[in-house]
Design a protein around this nucleic acid. Structure first.
Lengths: 139, 139
DNA sequence: CATAAGGGTTCCGGTAACTGGAAGGTCAAG
DNA sequence: CTTGACCTTCCAGTTACCGGAACCCTTATG
């Protein structure tokens, strides 16, 4: 199986597949002419990676997950631990984005969005920095 | 005002302030000895940038926003347009993260997380790639 | 006067996870 | 023999910085 077919099969761009080889996530054989040859196992691993990445796992997490997957003596606790950590990260990002969204949507709502210069969005951006003092010189 | 004070005042690391100068967001004067001297205007701009960045605006958006802020003949519509675009991006990310969170939390919940190897998380990652066919060679 | 502390400066490299593009080899078809 | 579709490697760029090295300036102190 050549890279194009694997790409079609896994949904991963060929560039990404080469990259994954570069960083040692897979080790496809080579033909005489230098072309990569992907075994079913390689394809399976790539599909695994694609799925894990789509769930937002970092590539290094994916490496660990893949290793655990290969290890038939693994403890599911190790897997769960990685997933929980990732889940926390997601929650952190969600919280941050939600806060941003809240503020930003209020600002957008309050802005006329016409030809006039008056703009609550800019006022907020400019005004929030309540600089205590320190300015001893002019512009 | 030297960089340390400005850093304390704006909450931006000195490194970041230098970076913002590098990419042309501010242009502080220099003393004879090469030290940066920040005017009140510089500090104000940096506070503006800090606030905009905290709302998730990309640095290039910040550049545009700063330009609009400086332009007393701006149209608030231009500002609003940038903000709305950013808001859409935030919504996109929120949606993506929410989907991830949903799947991931189910997987985490379903995993025993003990010493046994059986793991629904790994099963999901491995199983989702329903490879249609194509495998003509073994590993 | 030497030096140490605590500023400041520039420049280089690294981060995450790829993506785009150049330059060029391989292979089957016409 | 050339065209076109593959494949290869390698280099650069992306985003928004951070860490660290190597070095300068200033002031205080023994």
């Amino acid at each position: 199986m050549n890279i194009k077919s694997v790409s079609a099969l896994t949904g991963l761009p060929a560039k990404t597949i080469r990259y994954y080889e570069d960083i040692g996530l897979i080790r496809p054989r080579r033909e005489e002419n230098g072309y990569r040859v992907f075994s079913d196992t390689d394809v399976h691993k790539l599909a695994f990676l694609a799925r894990a990445r789509s769930l937002g796992f970092a590539v290094e997490d994916c490496r660990s997950l893949l290793a655990l997957y290969d290890d038939k003596n693994r403890a599911s606790g190790d897997v769960k631990s990685i997933a929980q950590h990732h889940l926390k990260e997601i929650d952190r990002k969600l919280k941050e984005l939600t806060t941003m969204r809240q503020t930003l949507s209020e600002l957008v709502r309050s802005c006329a969005g016409d030809n006039r210069p008056n703009c609550p969005i800019l006022s907020d951006l400019a005004g929030h920095g309540a600089l205590r003092s320190g300015g001893t010189e002019g512009a």
